[in-house]
Amino acid sequence: MAEFIRRVTVRNRLPLDYSVASLRVVDRITDGLRRAGPEQGSVARELFWLGAYAGEVFVRRSGAEWVDFDKGQRELFGQMVGVRMPDGRVWNPIGKVAKRFAAGPEESVQQMYFLLHGRLPMNAAR
């Protein structure tokens, strides 16, 4: 993931600094990919890494941890991994980025962060 973030940041001068505000940049990058008109399959790798980046923001800023989804969660979310919040709830930031690509602005990764249940206060997160 670090290499992907480095390439995107350097090439496009985007502030992907693992801040909550940078999730807005994830939304914008996803919108740009969507406007370019490719099929989702042709940008699946980029969408995955953007979702992984969003998940890492959740980990660093809200006290979440990466988890392997169980069989039921994999079927529900269509992903192998996600994040677990301190209250035990699991979320799928990788899938959220894919939804943003498919549906547009009503599926905001940044808004997802603000709606997360069980977040630690900003000053208590890792």
Rank of each mutant, 00 (worst) to 15 (best):
V97F: 15
F114V: 09
K96Q: 15
N123K: 12
D17K: 12
F114E: 12
Y53C: 02
Y53F: 11
D68W: 01
G88I: 09
L47N: 04
G104K: 13
A54D: 08
S62E: 07
V25Y: 03
Q40G: 00
A54S: 12
R61S: 09
L16F: 15
E65R: 15
V10P: 02
Q111H: 10
R119F: 13
M85Y: 06
P93K: 09
L50R: 04
V8S: 06
V8F: 13
L33E: 05
L76H: 07
W49G: 01
A52T: 04
W91T: 04
D70M: 01
R119P: 05
P38H: 06
L16S: 08
E39C: 01
N92G: 07
G118C: 10
R100Y: 11
R84A: 14
E75D: 00
F69H: 04
M112P: 06
V57H: 01
A52D: 08
D31W: 04
P38R: 05
S62F: 10
N12M: 15
D27R: 06
R60T: 07
K99C: 11
H117F: 08
M1S: 02
G78H: 00
R45L: 05
V57T: 04
V8M: 10
I5D: 03
K71P: 00
F69W: 04
G41L: 02
V10L: 15
Q110I: 06
F58D: 06
F4K: 00
